[in-house]
């Protein structure tokens, strides 16, 4: 797994976003389109693709895409 691929997967689920919107340092919760459903999408995607179960609390403690990737990477290992 690498962060480029991770971002690509996230963007593919976020229909609302123009490709290229998400960057490593993007604070995803500050995106105009952000809603609680997007939190569920992130949790579902990471569970399905990486077999890592994140909680709402995990998400509340991070803000950028890179931090999200970091949690997944650590839990995967």
């Amino acid at each position: 797994m690498n962060i480029e691929n991770f971002i690509h997967k996230l963007e593919a689920e976020f229909d609302e976003l123009e490709p290229g919107t998400l960057q490593k340092n993007t604070s995803f919760k500050d995106l105009d389109e952000w809603s609680s459903m997007h939190a569920l999408i992130i949790i579902a995607l990471i569970d399905t693709e990486y077999d890592v179960v994140l909680t709402g609390e995990d998400l509340s403690q991070i803000s950028t895409v890179e931090e999200l990737y970091g949690i997944v990477k650590v839990r995967k290992e």
């Binding site: 229909d15 569920l40 999408i41 949790i43 579902a44 995607l45 569970d47 399905t48």
Partner: peptide, 15 residues
């Protein structure tokens, strides 16, 4: 039911 997979499936499929 693998809820996460079904949830993504629905979001991807219905539109």
């Amino acid at each position: 039911m693998k809820s996460s997979a079904i949830f993504l499936f629905a979001l991807r499929t219905v539109p």
